[in-house]
């Protein structure tokens, strides 16, 4: 069923004379290169948590990764092209993961399998859980689900293949590993009182200075003062802000006076309602 569809390689951008058709194949270098690359993606044999079980089930005979040329799960990062981060990434584990990632040769791809690896998952609030592996290493494909079924994982792998297909050899941004010199390794986090990302060192230092001056430090009550702190400190990794509708009440209030007024009204109405109900929480 999963026969090689060679037709897509023969892109008829170049006119082939009728009598030669079937005898010559014309393709671009990028196409044949990407085709061979995506058809022999070797994943790293690397299971973290629950999703790893589904990953193994995908590799087993029912869903059969080898139909995609991916059955060669390599235990060594040196031999693998794809890291499937399959499960909850803890702060203790992110250090080895970054090291392993740095050891993988280019071109390398990272797939965040499941909610935990994508964005923290159900355990996100925990003190030892990283909110997504993309906080530390770049991720190519995210697969939602807790856990994603084998078919969902296969869909993710196909998405990755599509991504590889789109990378042109002519564009150095697509294939930076053919540029000059080795790629920069990702700085390995340090386990201190909490995990410390070396890229964040400057921000942490500034917070420490603030704390020494007795200014608001920490994160608990962000309304008002702490938000001011945030504005004063250049944030190293600015998260793409969500749209106004998704922004926090306080943040929205700072941005838009009209909205603030509306929110205040709503607050007041809510308070009135609560008072009317005798302070008891509505069920």
């Amino acid at each position: 069923m999963s026969q090689l569809d060679l037709r897509e390689l023969h892109s008829p951008e170049f006119p082939v004379p009728t009598d030669m058709q079937g005898n010559v194949a014309i393709t671009s270098l990028s196409k044949i290169y990407n085709w061979s690359r995506r058809s022999s993606m070797w994943p790293l044999l690397f299971g973290l948590a629950c999703c790893a079980i589904e990953m193994i089930a995908t590799a087993a005979s029912r869903y059969d990764l080898s139909r995609f040329g991916m059955e060669v799960m390599r235990a060594s990062p040196r031999q693998s092209d794809l890291m499937i981060v399959s499960g909850t990434v803890t702060k203790k584990m992110v250090v080895p993961i970054v090291r392993i990632y740095n050891q993988m040769p280019e071109p390398k791809y990272v797939m965040a399998m499941g909610a935990c690896a994508s964005g923290g998952g159900p355990f996100k609030e925990g003190y030892n859980v990283v909110s997504g592996i993309d906080q530390y290493i770049p991720v190519d494909v995210y697969i939602p689900g807790c856990p994603p079924t084998p078919q969902a994982l296969l869909y993710g792998l196909i998405s990755l293949q599509k991504k590889i297909d789109g990378q042109s050899l002519a564009n150095m941004d697509d294939v930076p590993w053919y540029g000059v010199g080795p790629s920069d390794p990702v700085p390995v986090p340090v386990l201190g009182p909490d995990i410390i990302d070396p890229r964040q060192a400057e921000l942490i230092r500034q917070q420490a200075v603030l704390a020494a001056q007795g200014k608001p430090f920490g994160v608990r009550e962000l309304s008002g003062a702490a938000l001011g702190v945030r504005a004063a400190v250049p944030v190293v990794e600015a998260k793409p802000a969500l749209e106004a509708a998704t922004a926090s009440t306080e943040a929205a209030a700072e941005l838009d006076p009209e909205k603030a007024a509306r929110l205040a009204k709503r607050e007041a109405a809510l308070a009135r309602k609560r008072a009317a109900q005798g302070g008891e929480k509505s069920e």
Binding site: K91, G119, G120, K124, E125, Y127, V129, V130, S131, Q135, G192, P193, D194, I195, I196, D197, Q200, L203, I204, Q207, A208, G218, V219, L222, A226, V229, R230, V233, V235, V236, E237, K239, A241, L242, T246, A247, S248
Partner: peptide, 15 residues
């Protein structure tokens, strides 16, 4: 909102 948007470090950390 995502929890990291509330955290000044943008990550699940406190020091």
């Amino acid at each position: 909102r995502r929890a990291e948007e509330l955290n000044i470090f943008g990550k699940n950390v406190r020091y």
